[in-house]
């Protein structure tokens, strides 16, 4: 589908042109590795089944995917504000096609960023996955990007203005990160938070990444906590739900923002 390709290409070009965004996305996990890693490593000290920095690696990759895919999908808010969304809406394509294009754009961005970070991070923490592990990690990264991209899109399509954007980011991103198992195992959480973790797409992505990368430490209790198939099914499920929800939301009010509308009155 040419339209989907066009939407994906535009996302890529825009991303590569924003040098700050590229550097931030690659630098961010290393900042976490240094600062959060140092703190948690101290807490973990004395338990020498696993180096905390190794334990963090899947979570950090999950984090890269989350920021990469979510920020790409949330660009829909700026598209709406700048009017570009209306150019897309007046093209002879279905709303579902637009949603798919946007979600795939987020998938490509999330995946590419995760691959670049993995190439730097894994050697740094002396983590050498097996071939099968690396393949499963790739599957995890692609599916997580797609799920986060699709859900982010539904979120972005329901936001009317840029002002709401920052608040939503804080309300969504940080709980999602802390309840994902990226920094500590989900099973250490209380029952309520654990329940929240189960509706968190990032938790399944990180879990699958742990299956892929921490297989050697599984017996010590640091591998994936759910079955890989459940992780995969959940990620696919989230992707479908996000796409189905996003498609009609994109076309609301002909893609005109409240702000744009207010100025006209």
């Amino acid at each position: 589908m040419r339209a989907v390709y066009g939407i994906v290409v535009r996302e890529l070009v825009r991303f590569l042109r924003q040098r700050g965004r590229v550097l931030a996305s690659i630098g961010r996990p290393f900042v976490w590795l240094i600062f959060a890693g140092a703190g948690y490593a101290a807490v973990f000290a004395g338990r020498n089944e696993i180096d905390y920095r190794v334990y963090m690696a899947p979570g950090l990759l999950g984090m890269v995917v989350m920021f990469g895919a979510l920020l790409a999908a949330l660009s829909t808010v700026t598209d709406r504000d700048a009017g570009v969304l209306r150019m897309v809406l007046v093209a002879p394509i279905r709303r579902g096609t637009i949603a798919l294009g946007k979600a795939l754009g987020a998938t490509v961005l999330g995946t590419t960023q995760a691959v670049v970070v993995a190439a730097l991070l894994l050697p740094l923490v002396h983590l050498r996955p097996s071939i099968a592990g690396a393949l499963l990690a790739a599957v995890a990264v692609v599916l997580s990007s797609l799920a986060m991209g699709a859900l982010g899109l539904a979120l972005a399509a329901s936001i009317r203005s840029l002002e709401n954007f920052a608040g939503v980011m804080n309300f969504v991103v940080f709980p999602m990160l802390f309840l994902s198992g990226a920094l500590y195992p989900v099973r250490h959480l209380g029952p309520v938070l654990r329940l929240v973790a189960y509706v968190n797409p990032l938790a399944y992505g990180v879990d699958l990444l742990k299956h892929a990368l921490l297989g050697a430490w599984a017996s010590a209790g640091y591998g994936g906590e759910m079955s890989s198939w459940l992780d995969i099914a959940a990620l696919v499920g989230f992707a479908v739900v996000g796409l189905v929800a996003a498609a009609p939301l994109l076309a609301r009010e002909g893609g005109v923002t409240r702000t744009a509308f207010r100025q006209r009155v």
Partner: peptide, 17 residues
């Protein structure tokens, strides 16, 4: 139009849409 893209890039994007 996408203000960050060039005229040509915008038209290519439209062509694909």
């Amino acid at each position: 139009l996408d203000r960050d893209l060039t005229v040509q890039e915008n038209l290519r994007f439209a062509g694909r849409l």
